[in-house]
Write a protein that binds this DNA or RNA. Structure first.
Length: 563
DNA sequence: GAGTTTGAAACT
DNA sequence: CAGTTTCAAACTC
């Protein structure tokens, strides 16, 4: 295959058509998709498809080869574990998984629209699905649908953005799968961190070494494990399901535990006690993902089992604020004229969609969503005494840090800058590798991006990442949007959003929705809302990393079911 | 690990 | 729309 495009993109593009072509007619096919790895082509294609297995395999192999470069270690392990898919594709599971990840992602976005119809059929057959009438739901489900509880679970789905509820929206039986995904994706998320770690002094700890490849391999392994375990677990591990509820026991413990492990492993996990994980207070919910094992939440309703409730709640929230689930941090780089200097100045050409309202943290702590998201404050912020290391509200940014009064700020800034540089370099290297080889999943990427800033720090930013991951949410939304299209409350911001370059706009917003184009939000404070995007890229360094991501993501636009 | 602080989200 | 309350993350000890 040509490498000109990043794998993800290629897949997407290539797949889209086929996908549309090939309907998934029955569960089997669907399974195939999952199992197989769902490369775009592979996924959609039936074993018997026109291309013929052989040809498919060849293609697949090519891809694999490509991927393999990076994935070598992981593969071997995975292969062993690979669940045998009914299909012939068993051969290179690892690769396939990767591919799948890419594809899946693509599928999520693209396919949702394109395949919707065909999928519907599938979904129906695939039982899992709630036969909910909502297109979005169906669509989402479909994405996930492909996975079958059985064997495939072993291959946790790559973290496709799809993880989101949307995708997740499966019934309890699917739950494990979800978990897998979540986990998997959590790992992916971790990648960035790990990567960062590498750079970072502290990074030394565990994962440090993980170069991209290693990381990926690790991830894969995990995935495999998860997959396998999960698969097993699923059966064996009622714990999962049950646990969540049980976990409540020691929320903090758990949470911390994961955090540690997790610095590398940041997966969205919440600790909600009263919100039932059905409010935006809940990071998982806000991110559009179901709560998973690592969560220490209590009375959690953010589970596949309560899909209806979750969806209903989401709708409600969206009706109130269409952008509620959109990424909080948007890459405004050029797009935000309003910000003017600020935007351009800040290290990260990104801004928090609504801005912060910090009073005491000086925007130097993660209490500040802007800071947490690794972006500078903008005019839309109502913060007081802003000293955001990523860019102050007044327009000054790190570069000028000398000016900053507080040591803290300086320290932060410096560290950040340094880190960024380091990251950039490293990331570049990684990028190259990745470009060629890694099929990063959107989610992971997106999340990474957000997290990156913090990667340097001890802890990865939890929420913002995900929120951004909002992309995820975005997905969710988009998928949903098909129907609701609430987006666009219009507002002063409209112009703003309009100005935003399309590419920036996540399909999600744009996509389905016609409406979305100007994603505005009914946001309460009339804060500026930008189209959620792939926003991630706050800092330069990150950006670099993100580029990878973005590149792969780009497919969105094309994917969007413009039709 | 418990308690405090903080600011977003939700509510009135 | 502004003010207040609720909530959970972030942070401190």
């Amino acid at each position: 295959m040509q490498n000109s495009l990043d794998p993800a993109t290629r897949f997407c593009t290539s797949l889209a058509p086929q996908l549309t072509q090939n309907d998934v007619n029955d569960e089997q096919n669907v399974q195939v998709l999952d199992i197989v790895g769902s490369g775009g082509q592979l996924e959609t294609e039936d074993p018997s498809s026109q291309y013929g297995e052989a040809s498919q395999l060849e293609r697949t192999e090519q891809m694999e080869d490509h991927l393999n470069n990076c994935m070598v270690s992981s593969q071997s392990e995975k292969e062993d574990n690979k669940v045998e898919t009914p299909m012939q594709f068993n051969c290179k599971p690892a690769v396939l998984n990767l591919q799948r990840g890419l594809r899946r992602r693509c599928l999520d976005f693209e396919m949702a629209g394109a395949r919707r119809k065909s999928l519907d059929n599938v979904s129906n057959s695939s039982s899992n699905m709630l036969s909910q009438s909502d297109e979005k739901i169906t669509t989402n489900d479909k994405q996930l649908v492909p996975m079958k509880p059985g064997g495939e679970s072993s291959r946790c789905i790559l973290p496709g953005i799809g993880l989101h509820l949307n995708a997740l929206a499966k019934t309890s039986k699917d739950y494990k799968i979800i978990k897998c995904e979540s986990l998997a994706y959590g790992r992916q998320l971790s990648l960035p961190n790990s990567t960062a770690d590498i750079h970072s002094p502290t990074g030394g700890q565990g994962p440090v070494h993980e170069s991209f490849s290693s990381a990926s391999s690790e991830r894969d392994m995990d995935g495999t494990e998860n997959g396998v375990q999960l698969a097993h677990d699923a059966s064996q591990e009622p714990a999962f399901l049950a646990n969540e509820e049980f976990n409540q026991n020691s929320p903090k413990k758990k949470r911390r535990r994961f955090e540690h492990a997790g610095e590398t492993e940041s997966c969205k996990r919440c600790n909600c006690k009263k919100s039932k994980c059905l409010k935006l207070y809940c990071e998982c919910f806000a991110a559009g993902v179901y709560c998973i094992e690592p969560c220490s939440c209590q009375e959690c309703f953010n589970k596949p089992i309560h899909e209806d409730t979750v969806l209903a709640t989401r709708k409600q929230i969206e009706s109130r604020n269409p952008l509620a689930f959109a990424p909080k941090v948007i890459r405004s780089s050029d797009s935000v004229p309003e910000l003017g200097e600020e935007s351009s100045k800040t290290p990260a050409s990104a801004r928090h969609k609504r801005g912060c309202n910090c009073k005491k943290s000086s925007c130097l702590k993660k209490y500040c969503e802007c800071y947490q998201g690794g972006v500078g404050c903008s005019i839309s912020c109502r913060c007081e005494g802003c000293k955001n290391a990523f860019g102050r509200k007044d327009g000054s940014f790190i570069g000028t840090e000398a000016e900053l009064d507080e040591e803290e700020a300086e320290a932060c800034e410096k560290s950040v800058a340094e880190k960024h540089q380091q990251k950039i370099e490293i990331q570049k290297n990684e990028e190259q590798r990745l470009d060629s080889a890694l099929p990063t999943t959107p989610l992971r990427l997106s999340r990474q991006m957000v997290s990156l800033p913090f990667s340097s720090k001890n802890k990865p930013p939890r929420s913002s990442v995900f929120s951004i991951g909002g992309s995820s949410s975005g997905l969710y939304t988009s998928q949903k949007l098909g129907k609701p299209n609430i987006l666009r409350p219009e507002s002063k911001f409209e112009r703003h959003s309009q100005t935003v370059p399309e590419d920036e706009m996540p399909e999600i917003l744009q996509g389905d929705g016609s409406p979305s184009t100007g994603v505005k939000t009914a946001s309460p404070n009339s804060k500026r809302v930008c189209p959620p995007n792939s926003d991630f890229g706050p800092s330069p360094g990150r950006r670099t990393g993100r580029k990878l991501i973005l590149q792969s993501i780009p497919s969105f636009p094309s994917l969007t079911p413009q039709h």
